[in-house]
Amino acid sequence: MADKGTQVKMEEIAGGAGQPITVLRFVGDITSTSQAAVLGTYQGLPDTAKQILIDFSKVEYLNSSGIALVIQMMIAASKKGQTIQSFGLTPHFMKVFTMVGITRYTKLHVDEASAVAAFPG
């Protein structure tokens, strides 16, 4: 049985004040095998990317190894002074992310509109 794998689409949208927001839309599974998709994609972002929005709405399966990769991305973003907002997690994974403390460093929004609105203009 093959791991479903992680697909990621990157796009740029405009925030409330017209500032550019880089969106990373993950699809499929986020597990220990997702390093290239998660960290590789993040590391390929231009240095001008200051506001990053993570879309989890099409993620079907997440485990603790995948969550570790998300944290590694947050560490790298923190070092660069980038702001991360997230949306689209199921209520269960919002609970799991809260349990491990991720909510201290990024807010988990229920939808894209509220996540976009949370970025400073």
């Binding site: 570790a68 491990v100 201290r104």
Partner: peptide, 15 residues
Amino acid sequence: IDKKMHEEQRTRGMG
């Protein structure tokens, strides 16, 4: 999470 974010604790190992 604070230690993880400051790289004082490994990011894995939450299982």
